[in-house]
Design a protein around this nucleic acid. Structure first.
Lengths: 333, 333
DNA sequence: GATTCAGGTTGGAACGTTCCAAGAGGTCCT
DNA sequence: AGGACCTCTTGGAACGTTCCAACCTGAATC
């Protein structure tokens, strides 16, 4: 028999299906003897409850779905870990799908979760946005991590990207830099605010003529092409703010390959503070985001929305923190 | 209305539920006019098929479940990407759960997938093994990636870890090293064969007295504690083979922190060839595994098993490839 | 000895699909 | 005109649970 059902267990144990159901959800109003008989039968048959059937009749799945834009970025591992823990503690389960930063695949990944009737949807730094996401949020509680969306139905957990970018520029200006370029995150979540925070801060320091934003992306590759383009353009900046750590790693490698010294010739700053950039080899100055907490908070918001269906949208904004390491220093003379 | 059903759509469109069902699975025997009416009604109501109901009656979910032991390791991102692509191309969908290298959580993650009645189960480098996994494989086609299990019901896709380890040792011996230590992967998938490959190769080179295996783990932290312990013991080896790249990064950082030179004082080798270690900063000599292909092959095996239920177990073993970079060199004089 | 009560157990309806056998209309052939 | 045969459409049963109201049994109460 492929998958024994509750009825098979009932037969084996000589009781009704209802009683088996009670035992499975361990109700307290079944006698010790029946409970034992049922459990014995269940394990003898290798019974496993069928979540699909359960979901149907309860019209709740007790599952939270998480769509992750980019599994390659270790940033998300911690966010997911936070989500998973909080959700598990509350008696739910988390499942993931991934979109690989491709809008079409992201949409499919989200649709999969919606069709499975997850009770809550968490989007970790989605590339897609707009109507599609808003539509989704109309049928299921939705939280976005890493980016905010203007819609009254969608909660968000972000760090203050604009502020983080400003802290970076302040730090560089303080070191004496004026010619500071930015390699952006393209269409990625949070890329916009970081870019505009950069520009705003530059203007605030009277450096509007030195604003220079290059196209990059939230990947190693994005960082390296951005840096390659930047170096090719001539008029080398003395510092570069790269949209995230992964891209900064790519950018650093291009600089190393060009025989330039960091921070002697050029200072580099990233964003995220993933553990890989903390070591002596990279020693990247970056902006820390409390990843694990972001995951926990996202889960908290979702659970709150599921269980008390709070009508209004919450937007949690966490404070970024500058982490200074060896990749930044005074500009060359 | 929270979730419109096929019946709501039928009412709206003025047809029977059966016809709506046919349109949804786009059957070719519905008239153009009804098809249009149904689609219009469906999108007006925001109808989304309920996968739980579908799974119930078809007794197939068209979903492949993937349990990933460690999302922090970028190695898996590529494996998952390969799985996702192959599975999607075949008309299935992939969902993930994660166990965070903790056996208890892994078991829960697997149970979640089984209860959802996934049609196939892929375990990416699970820490758990034994009865639990074998039980699972009795009810659903199962493939393990990164580790082999002796059971006639379980397929596996691995690289030849033992051989890979031997290639590492051969390389180091050729450079002139004799005192070569190993920081292992603990209980992680593939850790055993790499450890024994190391030991066997050392013996083969007549270096049995120099065998020294330290406890590590497949994480940065594991590598750094392993290396810290190793350095604390005195009698510093001239080369260390670390169980994977992530751990090697941790180990390198400890070495850097101790003021030692790589490869001048000590050579380091990793395993996996994740992109992060390829750059100038780390330049880690390592062993390449064809991650993406491993994912595709795992998916291929699962689909084959699902659709043609092949009875016997397949074990695919891929060839590792040594990638020599700057972290290895001749031993100090 | 009848009545109430509590503890334990039960069958049936419902959830939202798919599948199947069968029905409704048309067209075409003889 | 009658039948055969299309094409399109339909209602009902089934999938494996949960939930509910109802039932049974024996003990406690009057």
């Amino acid at each position: 028999m492929k998958h024994p059902t509750i009825l098979d267990v009932a037969n084996e144990a000589g009781v009704s299906k209802s009683l088996v159901s009670l035992v499975m959800r361990d109700s307290d109003r079944v006698s010790a003897s029946s409970r034992e008989a049922v459990l014995k039968a269940a394990s003898a048959l290798g019974y496993r409850p069928n979540a699909a059937a359960r979901t149907m009749v309860r019209r709740r799945s007790y599952v939270v779905g998480v769509m992750v834009s980019d599994l390659r970025n270790p940033f998300f591992a911690d966010v997911i870990d936070g989500i998973d823990m909080a959700v598990t503690d509350a008696g739910y389960r988390a499942i993931l799908t991934t979109g690989n930063r491709a809008p079409e695949r992201e949409r499919l990944a989200i649709a999969t979760l919606l069709e499975m009737r997850v009770d809550g949807l968490i989007l970790a730094s989605p590339v897609v946005g707009g109507e599609f996401v808003i539509d989704a949020s109309r049928t299921v509680p939705t939280v976005i991590v890493g980016k905010a969306i203007r819609a009254s139905t969608i909660d968000s957990v972000t760090n203050d990207d604009r502020r983080g970018a400003e802290m970076v520029i302040d730090h560089l200006v303080e070191l004496g830099h004026r010619c500071i370029a930015h390699i952006d995150g393209g269409v990625g979540a949070g890329a916009g605010p970081r870019r505009s925070g950069y520009a705003r801060s530059m203007r605030r320091h009277g450096l509007e003529d030195d604003i220079r934003s290059m196209r990059g992306g939230f990947t190693e590759e994005g960082g390296s092409t951005g840096m390659t383009d930047l170096l090719a353009e001539g008029a080398r900046p003395t510092a570069v703010f790269v949209a995230n750590d992964l891209a900064a790693i790519g950018a650093l490698d291009v600089i190393d390959g060009a025989g330039l010294n960091v921070p002697g010739d050029i200072s580099i700053v990233g964003y995220d503070n993933i553990s890989l950039v903390a070591g002596h080899r990279l020693g990247l100055t970056t902006v820390d985001q409390p990843r694990h907490d972001m995951g926990r908070m996202a889960a908290g918001l979702i659970l709150e929305k599921i269980e008390q269906d709070r009508p209004s949208a919450s937007h949690v904004v966490l404070s970024p923190k500058l982490i200074v390491r060896e990749s930044t220093g005074p500009p060359p003379l």
